[in-house]
């Protein structure tokens, strides 16, 4: 057992008893950490209000060697995203970020760049209107790239032949050439507008402030939703709440 310090984002939490909570923390230094916070439900504790969902906090925890839950001993609020409390699409998008970080990553597999991008994303949510979906899409592509799941966008995901728009296969892992498309059961049409947006965001995630039609935004949401579902092995819980 060793005492560790980290900066963490609370991505899941559930009550364990009348006074304790079990939390999933996504830390910059260690990746995903699951810990028991004894007394975490009490107002006057070593955790104050730091264990609320999507709160950034500085934590101290005892790492268990046995593989069970770690023990959280201290948590202090570093940042709260008030923008998620005043804009419903931003609230849902924030919860989706938490779901992806919690369920698409492994324990003790740190990704500091992804942690920083998650915080930037959460800060930028709120008041974006129709751009909320694109900001989220940009985060998803960064996350997929960081985890080694980047969709193939410039060559056929099956035969690697150069190809652009046409169709997209979530199971195959990206765009498909006309020949391979026939063999992929979940291949769906990919419009040139949607393809160029995906390429632009994959090349430079900061390019999310783009004017797009509702049709293309909806199309992008559907493709990424299916792609993430395939990588996750199930449909994300937040998917029905997201808008394009």
């Amino acid at each position: 057992m060793s005492l560790e310090q980290a900066t963490a984002l609370v991505v899941r939490g559930s009550d364990w008893s009348e006074s304790s909570r079990i939390v999933t923390l996504w830390t910059r230094e260690f990746g995903r950490v699951r810990a028991l916070a004894k007394g975490g439900r009490r107002l006057k504790s070593n955790f104050e209000v730091a264990l609320d969902l999507l709160t950034v906090c500085n934590i101290v925890f005892i790492r268990k060697s046995s593989g069970g839950l770690d023990l959280l001993t201290e948590a202090q609020v570093e940042e709260r995203f008030t923008n998620l409390r005043t804009d419903l699409p931003a609230f849902y998008a924030g919860c989706y970020v938490a779901e992806l970080l919690s369920d698409l990553t492994e324990d003790y597999d740190p990704h500091p760049a992804l942690f920083d991008e998650a915080l930037t994303t959460l800060r930028e949510f709120g008041g974006l209107g129709k751009l909320t979906g694109l900001r989220l899409l940009s985060f998803e592509l960064t996350l997929l790239g960081e985890l080694g799941y980047s969709p193939a966008l410039r060559g056929c995901a099956v035969c690697q032949k150069p190809v652009e728009a046409g169709s997209f296969g979530a199971t195959a892992g990206g765009v498909l050439c006309p020949t391979c498309r026939l063999k992929e059961r979940d291949a769906r049409p990919l419009s040139p507008g949607a393809w160029s947006t995906l390429v632009a965001l994959q090349d430079d995630p900061t390019q999310w402030r783009r004017e797009l039609s509702d049709r293309i935004r909806t199309e992008l949401r559907q493709h990424l939703g299916l792609y993430v579902s395939t990588r996750l092995g199930r449909r994300p819980r937040l998917l029905p709440y997201l808008t394009g």
Binding site: R85, L88, F91, C95
Partner: peptide
């Protein structure tokens, strides 16, 4: 006054 409680209030208010 948690994130989910505030989200609920936001939903009802909308």
């Amino acid at each position: 006054p948690t994130l989910e409680g505030d989200g609920t209030a936001l939903y009802v208010s909308n």
